[in-house]
């Protein structure tokens, strides 16, 4: 399988702090790739560089064979990378359906087409019944799924998910896991996700990258990674593995 996304030696500093330190990894097309690590490890910052919010201080980011580091977020989204925000940012005063329609309009000129597509996406994410509600009226789990729906509606090749399970109850987590699995199976959608909920990571990811203090400290299959002493020390702690 060829790499859809290739990140090489990417570094980002905030004043003195090195938030991301020469991180290198590849996401194969069609895979589900997870990035884990303790708070402040630099995961979101890494995402922000891939999504174009920050330009990396050094290193390269290749997507579908093209260099994308430093492009603006909207350009990157138009090339096929869509993202969610860790702290959800729906368009609060707009209806759920309009939120998703906006995403769908990226590659569709006609509003009715986009709306039809948005409804399809909403059905997949179990939000169809709530399509007439204002986004600001939704509960957190619903808002998280709305965030995914909007990103998905832009027809991405690669979906970046920043902690979409955080704050969800176990049943909600399982629901999200099921949805993501479906998306990955049928649509051959490639997913790169940041996740703290190890249950979800173990269930979903084909490959895991562990970050700590900005650096990648371990990489491999979920099974390998959770047994890596460096990961246990810095992140998981002994009890999690048992």
């Amino acid at each position: 399988m060829s790499a859809l996304l290739a990140v090489a030696g990417v570094t980002k500093r905030f004043r003195g702090l090195i938030a991301v330190d020469r991180v290198t990894f590849e996401v194969p097309a069609g895979g589900i790739f997870a990035v884990i690590g303790p708070n402040g490890a630099g995961k979101t910052t890494l995402f922000n560089m891939i999504a174009g919010v920050f330009r990396p201080d050094s290193g390269t980011i290749d997507f579908a064979g093209e260099q994308i580091a430093g492009l603006s977020p909207d350009r990157i989204c138009r090339r096929g990378i869509s993202r969610t925000f860790q702290i959800v940012r729906p368009f609060p005063a707009l209806k759920v359906e309009d939120n998703v329609t906006i995403g769908a309009l990226l590659h569709r000129k006609s509003v009715p087409d986009a709306r039809a597509h948005a409804r399809e996406v909403l059905r997949r994410l179990d939000l169809y019944g709530k399509r007439e509600q204002r986004a600001s009226a939704l509960t957190l789990p619903d808002r998280k799924r709305l965030e995914v729906a909007r990103a998905l509606a832009t027809d991405p090749k690669l979906l970046l998910l920043d902690e979409v399970m955080a704050g969800l109850r176990p049943t909600e987590t399982d629901r999200m896991v099921r949805i993501l699995k479906e998306l990955n199976d049928e649509g051959r959608l490639t997913i790169l996700l940041i996740e703290h909920v190890m249950r979800a990571v173990m269930a979903l990811a084909t490959h895991v990258l562990v970050m700590h203090h900005g650096a990648a400290i371990s990489e491999g299959s979920p099974g390998e990674v959770v047994r890596d002493p460096a990961v246990i020390d810095s992140y998981l702690g002994a009890e999690t593995v048992v």
């Binding site: 977020p73 940012r89 368009f91 609060p92 832009t154």
Partner: peptide, 18 residues
């Protein structure tokens, strides 16, 4: 639709490709 997205949250609008 794009205007409304920008009004509501410009950064989110940009990351939705606008």
């Amino acid at each position: 639709y794009f205007w409304l997205a920008i009004r509501e949250d410009e950064e989110a609008a940009r990351s939705a490709g606008i």
